[in-house]
């Protein structure tokens, strides 16, 4: 479904992503794991068009997408839950969700998606008139996920959804990710919490300073001694 081939990304002179290739098949949860600074977020930003690769190719459902501007990707079916949630803090929960459906014209579909998101996250429904900036971290994460679901994405990019959350909430968020995947959305997940990520993913890629150093089935990597030592503690 998503194919990334030999991309190289630079921050000015710094070569941040070196010849990275990976793919995500339809229906999978694929995770990119690695230490802070390994380039995970940069890769997601490059896939969603917020950054441009200097070389290499990205294609989605056989269509080249590496030249497209970020705002066009949502219409193809790629939604992105960014690192740090980035909800619109001065707007209400409902307005945030409306913006998630910004590219949708079909009013009935928007209404249906609202019901779907509110059913998945009853707490968002209770707080729909509340300003997003006043929500707790976990609620903001739910809002960021719900906002992305409003566009009915085929592929959902998720950047560190567990960051800064209490362990019990982390478990809840990961259960939700599994549910979203079971309902038919393909997921590319970036995580520092490698244990959790590997426990729900089908396949995984391990990144180290901008390079893929290991790839395989998530189960195998969970049992891999090197991975355990480096990332699972």
């Amino acid at each position: 479904m998503l194919k990334v081939k030999n991309i190289n990304v630079y921050y000015d002179a710094i070569h941040a992503i070196k010849d990275v290739s990976f793919k995500v098949n339809e229906g999978e949860i694929v995770t990119l794991i690695g230490a802070n600074g390994a380039g995970k977020t940069t890769i997601l930003h490059t896939v969603s068009g917020l950054m441009k690769a200097k070389s290499g190719e990205i294609s989605f459902q056989k269509q080249k997408i590496d030249h497209l501007e970020a705002h066009k990707l949502l219409q193809l079916g790629i939604a992105h839950v960014p690192e740090g949630r980035r909800v619109f803090a001065e707007m209400t929960v409902q307005e945030n969700l409306e913006l998630g459906a910004f590219t949708k014209k079909d009013k009935k579909a928007i209404k249906r998606n609202f019901e779907m998101v509110y059913e998945k996250f009853p707490r968002l429904k209770e707080r729909r008139k509340q300003i997003a900036g006043t929500l707790s971290g976990g609620e903001q994460q739910m809002l960021a996920i719900g906002r992305a679901l409003m566009s009915e994405p085929k592929l959902l990019l998720m950047d560190e959804p567990s960051m800064g959350l209490a362990p019990i909430l982390v478990q809840e968020i990961f259960n939700i990710i599994k549910e979203i995947n079971a309902a038919g959305t393909t997921i590319l997940l970036v995580e520092q919490n490698a244990n959790m990520a590997l426990s729900i993913a089908h396949r995984a890629y391990v990144l180290e300073t901008g390079k893929v150093v290991l790839e395989g089935n998530a189960k195998d990597l969970l049992g891999n001694d090197e991975v355990r030592k480096a990332y699972l503690g």
């Binding site: 970020a70 705002h71 980035r86 619109f88 913006l99």
Partner: peptide
Amino acid sequence: EDPGAAQLMGI
């Protein structure tokens, strides 16, 4: 509020 996040909404 956040041009980057706005782009991710398709704006």
